[in-house]
Structures are given as structure tokens and as C-alpha cells.
């Protein structure tokens, strides 16, 4: 649940907070969005799921929610992205480089679900001819 109400936190590492602000500015999103993503990702990686009522309930849903957000970011249209634990691990012009970064991220800390795709590809409805029909 998102509210307008603020939270006052003491002992925040200023240097790390400045880096977080810089990342948010680079991606053109508010700091609170980045913090919400980081919190959701932390909860999922430590417990495996977010309690119901929080909007997302599984690793897949966290990653898919992140992808939906990425697909609305104009600068990512047509680019490859790698997503794990609800965060964008890598972006690139080709799948190989993104996969390489996903591999590095996995070797540092194994994740259980990930997305690798080109942003903005629509769901295709494909036709399956009778090739696999088998008599019982």
C-alpha cells in the first residue's frame, strides 16, 4: 500500500543514499520507487515471498512487475534487459551481454527466477498444425 505519509529514518549512510539518488536520476524515476523495489527485492530474497495484500506475492510477480515498469521506460524500448529479485541486473543491445551479466549476478548470489528479454515484444499468438497429434 502506497501512502503520502513520509518516514523519518536515522543513521542512513549518506554516501550510499547519494548513489541511490544518482541511480534514480539516471533512470528518471523518484527515489521512493527505487527504495520500494529494493525493499520488495530484499523481502523476496530473504523469505521467498511478500505477504499477500502487498501487491506482489512471488518471485515471478516481483520480476514481472519490474518488467512492466521497464516496458514503460522509453529509453529501454527495443533493448535487452535482465531482471532478477525485482531489479534490473543488466541492459544492453544484445542478449549475450545481458546473459553474461545475469551469470555474474547469479555467481555472486543465486536467484531463483529471472527474466531475459527484449523490451516491448508483444505476445504472439502462433499456430500449431497437426504435427504432434498422436493416436492413443
Amino acid at each position: 500500500m502506497l501512502t503520502e505519509e513520509g518516514i523519518y529514518l536515522k543513521h542512513i549512510d549518506r554516501a550510499k543514499y547519494r548513489k541511490l539518488k544518482a541511480i534514480a536520476a539516471e533512470r528518471g524515476i523518484p527515489v521512493y520507487k527505487l527504495l520500494n523495489e529494493a525493499i520488495a527485492g530484499y523481502i523476496v530474497s530473504s523469505k521467498g515471498s511478500i505477504p499477500s495484500g502487498e501487491g506482489v506475492t512471488s518471485l515471478e510477480e516481483v520480476d514481472n512487475a519490474k518488467y512492466r515498469e521497464a516496458s514503460e521506460t522509453p529509453s529501454l524500448k527495443g533493448r535487452w534487459v535482465g531482471i532478477a529479485r525485482g531489479t534490473i541486473v543488466a541492459t544492453g543491445d544484445d542478449a549475450e551481454s545481458v546473459v553474461g551479466r545475469m551469470r555474474e549476478a547469479y555467481s555472486k548470489s543465486a536467484f531463483r527466477h529471472g527474466i531475459v528479454t527484449r523490451v516491448g515484444e508483444a505476445r504472439e499468438e502462433r499456430e500449431w498444425l497437426a504435427g504432434s497429434i498422436q493416436q492413443q
Binding site: E60, D63, N64, Y67, R68, S71, G82, A84, V99, M102, Y106, F111, R112, H113, G114, I115, V116, T117, E121, A122, R123
Partner: peptide, 10 residues
Amino acid sequence: RLSERPESEF
């Protein structure tokens, strides 16, 4: 599942 497409593109 570690390199899946997003659900909306299945």
C-alpha cells in the same frame, strides 16, 4: 526459469 520471458509475452 532463470532466463524466462516476462509472463505478458508468453
